[in-house]
Amino acid sequence: MKSEKITKLILLIASVIILLIFSGMAWSMVKGAIPAFGKFGFFGFIFSTEWNPTEDHEVYGAMPFIAGTLITSLLALIICFPLSFSTSLFIAEYFRKKRIAVVLGTLVDLLAGVPSIVYGLWGFYTIRPLIASLGFEGQGFGIFTSGLILAIMIIPYATSISNEIISMVPNELKEAAYSLGATRLEVITSVIIPNSRSGLVAGYILALGRALGETMAVTMLIGNANIIPKGLFSPGNSMASVIANQFGEADGLKLSALIAIGLLLFAVTALVNATGKMIIRKFA
């Protein structure tokens, strides 16, 4: 009995590690961000659009990066939705359990295995020239190119969750609709979608969470202009990518500003992911 108590204690102590990592992360980042927040004010830092590392004129504001992150991620979600939803219908409804669905599913899974930097390379050498040939300025760098690549990157996450949710819709409900003379499309729109709505929403929220934090591919494609993007094809910068880009030469106030951006990114992704997981848990 004594050994059982000790074992349980060890398990409990291990679990505390998660608490420690979590609070340690929050604490370290808040501490690192304090100089920046102190100098510019919390809201001043968030809403300022200026980013000027020139010595003695240092001004740091996070707005261009917040805007860049949100716009590219939402764009990615918009592009991702029709693609991944169709793919899920293909895999979990139309060709359910057929070999072709397994093949498609495996290929989609492979998308998840491609490292971010490889997406960046592919985007840089293949997609960017395509976009540039459309005649927009900026050699094809910018919001649209990044959003497009991000969309491809989050497709496997969105698809695997929707697959699961769609295949959970009870067969008897689909049969009920068919017995009333519904076509396949009508079964999809009036039985499958309503019955899997919250799960699908959660899936896309979690996919959004991934898009928000993606770094390398965006760094290589967004154009790294520290401005609020002026349009779909305008260059810009994202929170994750400014950290990766400017970290090398950062110290003092600039380092603090980058940590502050990291803290904001941490908070936003934690919120988005917690929301998504909560919906999924309620749903399942």
Binding site: I21, G209, R210, G213, A240, I243, T269, A270, N273, K277
Partner: peptide, 10 residues
Amino acid sequence: DILQGVPSVV
């Protein structure tokens, strides 16, 4: 779960 969603750059 939240830790799993924290961006790697962070």
